[in-house]
């Protein structure tokens, strides 16, 4: 009997230790994946940058990797397009998103708020290729007609598509922030004779500003990382950005070069370098976001 019990206890100890190790392994694997991705992007991104030269690569205004005699590898057009496109999407998406969040948090009756929230959830679930398809068939022709352009596949079309795509995250993060504003602030304002709208915009919104800022940063991250939808509406030409020009983003440069560049060519390695630049952008945004949340938690 004792022997059996001892055996059972040993088996139990054994399985306990084993499961602990299994879970540890899972955790370590998760870290390993991040390391794998970072290492791959950095290692494969560096050679082309070294060959082209960092400054020529980052600030070169011409991308002509297939030119017979003098191929050029400047990604400034992509960087600027990503920056302008993101800024444009934020400029359009944030006001609409913020106002909708305010509507949901303060003005809407409960039922209506539930309906609008469902709409927001659905918008966030729609695949990006579907946004791209509708953008390509509805928005692009509309832009062409309205502005009398030879082609509607422009930075403007991309900005509009991106601004719709970042709306859901801006709305839900801002709404959470607005809902978290202590009731006492709003009461104090009303007791001073402020109207409800004055209270929402002059007290609640400033009190929720760090959360709203986080929503904006999140939106920036989304917009800068989107590839397929804007691939379908931006025309995908390596121009310097202009609102009515066909353009290529950092993400779409990666996606479009991936299918054409021959393995081992400088063009191929330059594509990895573009990915590295995008990765660094995203990491920067991540760091900003993390610092923000940490500050908020402490402050």
């Amino acid at each position: 009997m004792d022997a059996l019990e001892a055996k059972y206890a040993a088996a139990k100890r054994y399985s306990e230790t084993a499961m602990g190790l299994v879970f540890l392994l899972c955790g370590v694997l998760a870290v390993a994946f991040v390391l794998l991705i970072s290492a791959y992007l950095i290692l494969s991104g560096l050679p082309a940058i070294r060959e082209v030269g960092l400054l020529d690569f980052l600030f070169g205004p011409v991308w002509a990797p297939t030119h017979k005699t003098e191929p050029q590898f400047g990604i400034l057009p992509f960087i600027l397009t990503s920056v302008y496109g993101t800024a444009g999407a934020v400029a359009v998406g944030v006001p609409v998103g913020f106002l909708t969040a305010m509507f949901l948090s303060k003005l809407a009756p409960r039922r209506l708020a539930a309906v609008v929230r469902t709409a927001v959830d659905l918008l966030s679930g729609i695949p990006s290729v579907v946004y791209g398809l509708v953008g390509m068939t509805v928005l692009v022709p509309a832009v062409r007609r309205v502005f009398r352009l030879p082609s509607g596949a422009t930075l403007l079309a991309a900005i509009l598509v991106l601004s719709v795509m970042i709306l859901p995250s801006i709305i839900s993060v801002s709404e959470t922030a607005l809902n978290a504003v202590p009731r006492e602030y709003e009461e104090a304002s009303l007791a001073l004779g402020a109207t409800e709208t004055e209270t929402w915009f002059r007290v609640s919104a400033p009190a929720a500003s760090s959360g709203i800022a986080a929503a904006v940063v999140l939106g920036i991250g989304r917009a800068i990382g989107e590839a397929m939808a804007i691939m379908m509406v931006a025309g995908n030409v390596a121009n310097m950005p202009g609102l009515f020009k066909s353009v290529r983003f950092l993400t779409t440069a990666i996606a479009s070069e991936m299918s054409y560049a021959g393995v081992g060519s400088l063009q191929r390695s330059a594509l990895y370098s573009i990915a590295l630049v995008l990765f660094l952008f995203i990491m920067l945004i991540n760091v900003i976001l993390n610092l923000w949340f940490k500050n908020k938690r402490e402050g």
């Binding site: 202590p182 006492e184 602030y185 009461e187 104090a188 304002s189 009303l190 007791a191 001073l192 004779g193 402020a194 109207t195 007290v203 400033p206 009190a207």
Partner: peptide, 20 residues
């Protein structure tokens, strides 16, 4: 009511200054 509340001001139990 904004006119009324301006005439009849209020101080609450818990101090509630705005975060400004």
């Amino acid at each position: 009511v904004t006119w009324l509340r301006r005439q009849v001001g209020m101080v609450f139990q818990k101090p509630n200054p705005f975060p400004m």
